Simulated scan of single mutants.
Amino acid sequence: MRQEKAVNPWLRQGLELGPPILFFLAYMRFQDVTWTIGGRDYDGFILVTAGFVPLLLLSMGILWKLTGRISRIQVFTAVMVVVFGGLTVWLNDERFFKMKTTLVYGFFAVTLGIGLLRGQGWLKVLMGEMLPMSDRGWLILSRRIAATFALMAVANEAVWRTQSTEFWVTFETFGLPAFLFVAFMAQSRLIERESLSADDGERKG
């Protein structure tokens, strides 16, 4: 496996969090503006989405260049953003971009669920290098995070269908990531209890 290059943590955070925050700021600035392009009217959400897609790809490309690696989750998320962002702009319909978030979290929940049905904690594939834990620990963590992703998918679907676009943009930019962060932080006791020491890893390797 290719070794990831060290990069300034503040730069990494900027590249990972910058695009969604800029999307939020741009939408708040242009939400009431309408552009007429080629005889069609596009509201602020559509045009901001059109700018967000290349910005996200550029940010990921820079991060890949700096670190030499990119995660499967990032690749999948980028593909979904390109596909549903493209549909949003092409069809001039903001619902596609809003549904994208539901599908991303739903996909993660279903994928982890399939692994659990096979008796495997598939989070280990993504995070095993960062969190050396027992197989039992990965099963428990995968079960909890799968439930978290499922809840986030349901929440996003409920919010975009019942609330204003402004509320959804705020919820998607800050609410869902904060909830996921808290959900992971709440697993600290599990991670501590099921963690493996270097000697354990060598004996099991």
Rank of each mutant, 00 (worst) to 15 (best):
A50H: 15
A50T: 15
A50L: 15
G51I: 04
F52A: 07
F52R: 00
V53Q: 00
V53W: 00
V53R: 00
P54N: 07
P54I: 01
L55H: 01
L55T: 03
L57K: 12
S59W: 01
M60W: 12
I62R: 07
L63P: 04
L63F: 03
K65C: 06
G68C: 13
G68F: 10
I70H: 07
S71Y: 04
R72D: 03
R72F: 07
I73Q: 12
V75C: 05
T77L: 12
V79S: 15
F84W: 04
F84P: 00
L87S: 03
L87Q: 05
T88K: 00
V89R: 01
N92S: 13
N92I: 13
D93I: 08
D93M: 07
E94P: 11
R95N: 15
F97Q: 01
F97A: 01
K98R: 13
K98A: 11
K98V: 03
K98W: 05
K100I: 02
T101G: 10
T101N: 13
T102Q: 12
T102D: 13
L103F: 09
V104Q: 00
V104C: 02
Y105W: 08
Y105P: 00
Y105Q: 02
F107R: 04
F107Q: 05
F108M: 14
F108K: 05
F108A: 08
A109V: 02
A109K: 00
V110D: 03
L112H: 06
L112E: 06
G113S: 11
I114H: 08
G115I: 04
G115M: 03
G115N: 03
L116I: 04
R118Y: 12
G119M: 04
G119K: 09
G119W: 07
Q120R: 15
Q120N: 13
G121D: 05
W122Q: 12
W122G: 05
K124S: 07
V125I: 08
V125S: 08
L126H: 09
M127Q: 12
M127S: 08
M127D: 07
G128H: 05
G128L: 06
G128M: 11
M130H: 06
L131C: 03
P132Y: 09
D135F: 12
D135L: 08
G137E: 10
L139S: 09
I140T: 15
I140N: 14
L141H: 08
L141T: 14
S142E: 05
R143L: 11
R143N: 08
R143E: 10
R144C: 14
R144E: 15
I145E: 13
I145P: 00
A146G: 09
T148D: 08
A150P: 00
